[in-house]
């Protein structure tokens, strides 16, 4: 498992890709997330060759959509997970999964620095808490995300520490809605 002590600021690197098409920033993101996306796709049932192919597609999408990343609403890992998940659904020809209507992206939707920092910390706490879960519960959650447990097989996920992250994101959504009205 990966040490968190020297974690680079992935969100800042994504911003550099979006704003100045910074190749070095992208190379750092690629070195970290490319192998992780490939591992995720393999655990979801893809063979190594197609997982590597699709991981490259995902990283191309990361470059192209970097400007849509909002660090007030997700961490870099969370955002890249959603791109990889969508690619996995296409690749394994799973059921179509429409996205919800997004909140409009106005010029006011500039991420709040304080929100972004707090969300980062809470995401790190969630990661820690996930690692500290009893093995049986953690493996149930992994199987739900990777090995395709069907929705009826997913047990109730009580004990997952989602509370603070949820209220943080809700605050950010309320602020965003307010700025749009």
């Amino acid at each position: 498992r990966v040490s968190r002590d020297t974690t680079p600021d992935w969100a800042a690197l994504l911003r550099r890709v979006a704003e100045t098409q910074d190749n070095d920033a992208f190379a750092a993101l690629f070195a970290h997330f490319g192998p992780r996306v490939k591992a995720y796709l393999m655990k979801s049932g893809a063979d190594a060759a197609s997982a590597e192919e699709c991981a490259q597609d995902v990283m191309v999408t990361v470059w192209r959509k970097a400007g849509q990343f909002d660090q007030g609403r997700a961490s870099a890992a969370t955002w890249i997970f959603t791109i990889a998940r969508n690619r996995r659904i296409d690749m394994l020809r799973r059921d179509k999964r429409p996205d919800p209507e997004d909140l409009p992206w106005g010029p006011e939707a500039e991420p709040d620095q304080e929100d972004a920092l707090a969300l980062q910390q809470e995401t790190a706490q969630l990661t820690k808490a996930l690692r500290a879960l009893p093995e049986a519960q953690r493996s149930m959650i992994e199987r739900a995300y990777f090995a395709d447990l069907s929705h009826s097989e997913i047990a109730d996920v009580t004990g997952l520490p989602l509370g603070t992250i949820k209220s943080r994101i809700r605050l950010a959504l309320e602020r965003l809605r307010h700025s749009l009205n």
Binding site: R36, A39, F146
Partner: peptide, 12 residues
């Protein structure tokens, strides 16, 4: 975010 944390935990 749970998916992101799991993604971040393992690499090929």
């Amino acid at each position: 975010a749970v998916g992101g944390a799991l993604l971040d935990d393992d690499c090929a």
